[in-house]
Design a protein around this nucleic acid. Structure first.
Lengths: 163, 163
DNA sequence: AACATTAGGGTTATAGTATAACATTTTAGC
DNA sequence: GCTAAAATGTTATACTATAACCCTAATGTT
């Protein structure tokens, strides 16, 4: 596994982080939800990583970063809030969390997960949701939410090696 | 939540179980894999339930059923074997396992999960797999496996209540 | 049959993930 | 300021999963 996470495309990630935080603040204000310092800090840490972060990894980062030593319930509560607000998604297959680039529009969790570099990329396809819903309807099933996790190799890892 | 699990359609489930076990035996023989008594027993317990079963629930059932008291590694090893052979699927969102009705043809894990009665039904749609693959390809992603979990209400629960 | 080799399973301990229950602090509205 | 509600702190514990090591059972030789 490569040493450094490699995004699907190169970009200035610190810009992603700050704009994600700004948008989160805006949405929360609109909704009357409180993006407290702790919640904001957790969201920032999640965003700084292209790779999904586990709750305990987040706890360690919080400790490093801010002399703030929090216990599991604290970080889980912050994560629950961020999930409710659609600011992050949970990757069940990894027991980990990743920032949502489009929290303004409610949608389901559909991800491409590279097994080599660990990067997670959200799939933004309406077709996908439509096909899922239609397929479920054939069985008479009422869809409330869904989660899709696609494992494989991202373009970078695919070309560089793939091991 | 209703007291009894309700399958999407009524059927003689003991027949499902025995034919699943027979097919499993056949496939393992073909492949030179060993469906040992323990593995067979775990597979049977998984099949008897329409609802996904967790590893620890399985351990309890094994204990009840056969005076056989096994430790976690034992049941996890059996589950790993059954997963490798495609005889069961893992439902990540529930940390649980469910029998695969079509283990002869390799495929991904796509499930409808009723939040009311807990029943899991595998979606057998080629369209779905195709759309997933095509959508991933747009990002240049090489798909190796995927997992879809759709949460909602099955037809029975949808009509009877839905609470 | 004796042997070596390997797969399967038993056992103990521990790692990793998540939540219950209750105390305290902070915030917002009055 | 006072109150009620929300957020966070704290302790303990539940749930899920695997590491490491050992023994037994099955298989394939000679």
């Amino acid at each position: 596994m490569p040493q450094k996470p490699v995004a699907f495309h190169r970009h200035n990630h610190s810009h992603c982080v700050s704009s994600a935080l700004a948008e989160a603040q805006e949405l929360c204000t609109e909704r009357g939800a409180r993006l407290t310092p702790l919640r904001r800090q957790v969201l920032e840490l999640v965003w700084r990583s292209h790779r999904p972060l586990g709750a305990y990894a987040l706890m360690d980062l919080l400790a490093e970063e801010s002399t703030r030593r929090v216990a599991p319930p604290t970080v889980y509560r912050a994560l629950d809030f961020l999930l409710e607000q659609g600011l992050i998604h949970r990757i069940n297959g990894l027991n980990a969390f990743v920032g949502c680039p489009t929290p303004n529009e409610r949608h389901q969790s559909h991800f491409l997960l590279c097994r080599s570099c660990g990067v997670a990329k959200e799939m933004e396809s309406n077709d996908l949701s439509t096909v899922i819903r239609k397929t479920a309807e054939v069985d008479g099933f009422l869809v409330e939410s869904d989660s899709l996790e696609v494992n494989g190799l991202c373009p970078s890892c695919r070309s560089s090696d793939g091991a």
